[in-house]
Nucleic acid binder design. Structure first.
Lengths: 339, 339
DNA sequence: TAATGGCTGTGAAACGTTTTACTATGTTTT
DNA sequence: AAAACATAGTAAAACGTTTCACAGCCATTA
């Protein structure tokens, strides 16, 4: 089957190219006779408009870029899904890609985004490409940061209040009487990791909990490292009575270690995690959680994006910080005071 | 910042457009002096080539479409990730979208794919758009079906042997001595649902298990319906000694019901599921599973796609059927024979 | 009757590239 | 010194659209 262009349709219908275009876009005056002649020709020739040519002419692509750490991460993709649902009715579609937490990869992807002339970008940034992000903004492409912000960049973002979430998690454990609290943190080179770490540390200090350095261990945001970190905590001469784990991925590792060592929670140890609630459906007893409102993040991001895409007038950057909420379930036990 | 085109670069560097193009594509003869003048102009003006114009000229977009049920489904997206990793080195990128199991939506997406002139398509099809898929193929766009095939369409596909997987699951339960086996199946209007259903039913018949109709219940491929289905099974006057659940999503519902009713497995009831192994990391005791080789599906799909994209000569459709493997763990118990 | 105005359709320019055929230089080779 | 060749750069066509200015026509209106 040969490639068929608007020209072929025009010839086949015996009209000019301009007329066919009018029919395609329902613009201007076309008599009903001609109109049906053209639509007939279109379906007979099985013509499909070439979106590339169209975008070129219009300098508008109806594409938005979505760059996340990892497209197989269901939390990020649930946000992407929300966005998809919001923008598809206006005939936008998404380019989605993973930077795998590698700034160099992210840089290449941003380059691609620029070349592709997307109409907007939703980005979960690594740190270290502020210049490139600024470049995208300079090209008048709206950028919406999700989950993390970037130092020195003024644009829309939507993040949750990590410091607060961590602080309150510790506060809760303290309120139950815990004084020796283990913390499995991620890394401190990302804004999220740092904020959660600091929130926890500040709370520990404020509530005068044990300042035993051995209680602070890094799980590097990975399940395996968190597993090892947990083992360390459990085998301490004086193990913690509670553990706060800074994110869900690491919590998987932590739970594995606890299961394996046949500790029970909350009887032997109290645990609390920080993240999305959906991951833990089948875990018994149900985990007490500082809940990250993923649904809400997706919805807000989608709204902002939609507005950026459709509003004529630019509006000031929308920067949203969502406070996570403590979901008290059954994984933390009260501890006799004064111990 | 104004839009800057190849023309501006040419002017700024004092050369012709053609020369700039040569530099951009490293093609033809350019003296080193001119070359650096041009690259300098490019970075001074912050020029980015317009991929749309380029695609238009080349009639090649470096885009591939990826259409799945739901982009927030981690199993599908782990396949997508494998594909991404494989094709990005050759500077391809992906349009990804969800049809939500709705044929009408799928049709619209296929239309979009056609207009976008993608260079290839990876599709988890619904049933009911064979004509449209054929249209895509007619436009010389390679289509790779994943997880499901489509009646009447000759193209690459890669699926697992659902009938076999179901049959063998039942066979395994039978070999442990089970005779009253409950089956939670999905729906029978999709090829997967049908094949799994038939595999199970045929095995039940072949091994002369109980043919009590009440033991066959539909969970409609949803967790909630599977929950209800499980409750029905458990409250039967003569409940099954084992349950085979046809997919992971439904198994979530099944496990919930079992937990809630405080049945223990494998002591009170044996259970076996069909799906990807990664979902069940933390479930104790570890589930016995007919494992769907998602990794392998992704890898094979990526290889086929890559070949279709790069090979000059067309090759015959590659149709792969993968046999799932039984992973025996701890959720099934031996049953005294003859009961 | 002449002027106005609403329809209907057309031709050509423009969007930003790549590519092809061509010209203009040296530099060797005979 | 002429012929041959390698190198360097250019102008223009083409890719498939949309849009804009215009022209033809018919029906009103003055």
């Amino acid at each position: 089957m040969k490639k068929v262009t608007i020209k072929d349709v025009a010839k086949h219908a015996g009209v000019s190219i301009g007329t066919v275009s009018k029919v395609l876009n329902d613009k201007g005056y076309v008599s009903s006779g001609i109109y049906s002649r053209v639509t007939e020709a279109i379906s007979e020739l099985n013509y499909q408009v070439n979106a590339n040519a169209r975008s070129l002419k219009a300098s508008k692509t109806n594409k938005v870029g979505v760059i996340v750490q990892d497209i197989s991460n269901p939390y990020m993709m649930s946000i992407a899904k929300t966005i998809e649902d919001k923008i598809r009715p206006s005939h936008y579609h998404m380019l989605v890609m993973s930077h795998n937490e590698d700034p160099h990869t992210e840089r290449e992807l941003l380059q691609l985004i620029l070349e592709q002339r997307v109409d907007g970008l939703v980005l979960v940034p690594t740190s270290g490409n502020a210049d490139m992000i600024q470049k995208v903004l300079d090209h008048k492409i709206p950028v919406i940061l999700v989950d993390r912000k970037v130092e020195g960049i003024t644009t829309d973002y939507i993040v949750d209040d990590n410091y607060y979430g961590s602080y309150e998690s510790i506060a809760y454990l303290h309120s139950l009487g815990h004084r020796r609290i283990g913390v499995i943190y991620g890394t401190t080179n990302s804004s999220i990791g740092k904020e959660r770490y600091e929130g926890a540390v500040d709370a520990l200090k404020h509530f005068a909990c044990s300042n035993d350095e051995a209680l602070l261990v890094s799980g590097k945001f990975k399940a395996e490292d968190a597993y090892k970190a947990t083992i360390e905590l459990l085998f301490l001469p004086d193990p913690p009575t509670a553990i706060y784990c800074c994110n869900n991925t690491m919590t998987v590792g932590m739970l594995k270690a606890i299961q394996e060592q046949a500790w029970r929670f909350p009887e032997d140890i109290s645990i609390i995690s920080y993240g999305d609630v959906n991951q833990w459906e089948l875990i018994q007893p149900p985990l007490t959680l500082m809940t990250q409102p993923l649904k809400r993040i997706g919805v807000e991001a989608a709204i902002i994006l939609k507005n950026r895409l459709t509003m004529e007038e630019p509006f000031p950057p929308k920067q949203i910080v969502i406070k996570p909420e403590l979901l008290v379930r059954a994984s933390c036990a009260r501890r006799p005071e004064g111990e």
